[in-house]
Each structure stands twice: as C-alpha cells, then as structure tokens.
C-alpha cells in the first residue's frame, strides 16, 4: 500500500519585487497618474509644428550640396584645432584622472583621500562641458585654450570615476596574492591593479577622445575655439552649404574614432 502523498500546490507565482501590496500599487497608480497629467499639460501646438516643416525643408535644401571648397582653409584650421584640442585635453585629463581615480577607489585609499577625490570627481561631473567652457572663456578669454581647460576638467569627471569603479570591481585575490609577496604599494598597483583595469581604460580613453572631439564643436560655439567656432560662423553668415560640409566632416571623424575604439578594445582584451 502506498503512503498517501501530501497535497502539494499546483500553482506558483514569482514573488513580487516590492513586497508590500499597498506600496506596490501606490507606486504603479501614482506613476500612471503623473504620466497622464504630464502628457496632458504638454502644450502641443500642431499649427506651429506644421509651419516648422516647410521651414525645415528649406533649411535642409540649403545644406545641399555641401560646399567643401569655398572656405576650405578656415575649415581645415578649425578641424585641426579641434583635433589638437581633443587630443591634448584627453591626454591631460587622463593624466590628472589616474591619481584621482586611484584615490577614489575605496579598496585602495584611506577614507579621507577617498572623500577628497570623490568630491573632485563630483564637482567636475556637476557641470556639463558647455558650462565649464563658458567659465573658462570668462577666465582665459576666447580661443582654444579655454576649450582645452573645459574639456580636460570634463575628462576628469568621466575618466577618474570610471577608473575608480573599475578598480573597485577587481578580483581581490589577485591583489592579495601580489601583496603577499612583499611588494611595495606602487609595485602592487603596477602588478595587481593595472593589468586588471588596463583593457577597459584603453577603450575608455579612445571613447573619451571621441567625446572630446564632439564636445569641441560645442565649446567652440561659446567661444572655446576649434571647429565649433567655424561652424558657428558659417551659421551666422547663412553659409549653410559650408555648415553642412563641416557637419559631414565631424560625422566622418566621429565614426572613424568609434570604429577605432571598438577595434582597440577587442585587441587589448
């Protein structure tokens, strides 16, 4: 005679992410109400949108054909200035980011160093590049130097933060093993930390170069020199065909950098 099996339940549901049903439902209903209200209060003026469309068409028509020839000299000056600005601000920014990033990693630095470095990063991340550029232009006057300063500071906020986070995610036993050999602190960084974070850091520096090049177009508009200044001038003089040419060159260079960074990242893995 078989033993009577207990009556097991035949249905099962995944436990909800938020346990309390009251909290769960108030969040769901609350967000739904907010979204409905937000969309409801947005003033979509279809008439204005309709008026904008033909204007956009004219605008686009003025872009074609892009004119690479009339302002060639000025364009190349702008491009080279931007490339130069992007490269040196990336190099300088990364050079400054390395000590700050090391200090901002909780597993390397004592608490007070950590707090100082984290606040430097926080400070630099608070302001977008364009605002940093406005400050820098006010301080150092118009020209690429202001752009360089703005982009370098922007790079610190980006690179030091990601470096610190990567260091915090390293495999701790590899670091332990190197420490156990009697290595000094710089040797420990060089043998245990650096090999673990290097591939990502190389990928990120090319990515940052790409960002800095694009941002150099933006900081130029507020007086930071580079291709942005050239682009701004082209718009102000209604030379849309030249502006289109500049935009195409920017797109080309960004795509080339994008491709290079992808390739480099695979190669250094």
């Amino acid at each position: 005679m078989s033993v009577a099996e207990p009556d097991f339940p035949s249905s099962w549901k995944k436990p909800p992410f938020i346990k309390s049903p009251l909290l769960r439902w108030s969040i769901i209903i609350g967000s739904a109400i907010y979204l409905a209200l937000a969309f409801g209060t947005m003033d979509v003026d279809w008439e204005r949108a309709a008026e904008g469309l033909p204007r956009g068409k004219r605008f686009l028509a003025a872009f074609f054909p892009p004119n690479f020839s009339d302002n060639l000299g000025v364009m190349w000056d702008g491009i080279f200035e931007s490339i130069w600005m992007a490269i040196i601000s990336t190099v300088a920014g990364i050079a400054l980011s390395i000590p700050i990033g090391l200090g901002a990693a909780r597993n390397l630095a004592p608490k007070w160093v950590y707090l100082v470095c984290r606040s430097i990063i926080g400070g630099s991340r608070t302001f977008p590049e364009i605002i940093l550029a406005i400050f820098a232009v006010k301080l150092f006057g118009f020209g690429p130097f202001a752009g360089f300063v703005a982009l370098s500071i922007g790079t610190i906020g980006f690179y030091a933060k990601l470096l610190a986070e990567d260091i915090e995610n390293i495999n701790p036993t590899q670091a332990e093993a190197i420490k156990a050999t009697g290595s000094s602190w710089p040797q420990w960084i060089n043998y245990a930390i650096q090999p673990q974070v290097m591939p990502r850091m190389i990928g990120l520096s090319v990515y940052r170069l790409d960002i800095n090049f694009r941002e150099s177009a933006v900081v130029g508009i507020v007086g930071g020199g580079g291709i942005g200044a050239t682009l701004n001038t082209a718009f102000e003089r209604y030379e849309f065909d030249t502006a289109a040419a500049i935009l195409l060159i920017i797109i080309g260079i960004v795509m080339a950098l994008e491709y290079t960074s992808g390739y480099l990242r695979k190669w250094v893995q």
Binding site: T173, E176, A177, I178, Y191, P195, P199
Partner: peptide
C-alpha cells in the same frame, strides 16, 4: 602563499 583559485594575475 599559494591560493585556492590560483590568484594569478590573469592578464
């Protein structure tokens, strides 16, 4: 010291 998961620096 010799470790459980070898703890070689893999790269």
């Amino acid at each position: 010291m010799i470790f459980q998961e070898y703890a070689l620096v893999e790269r």
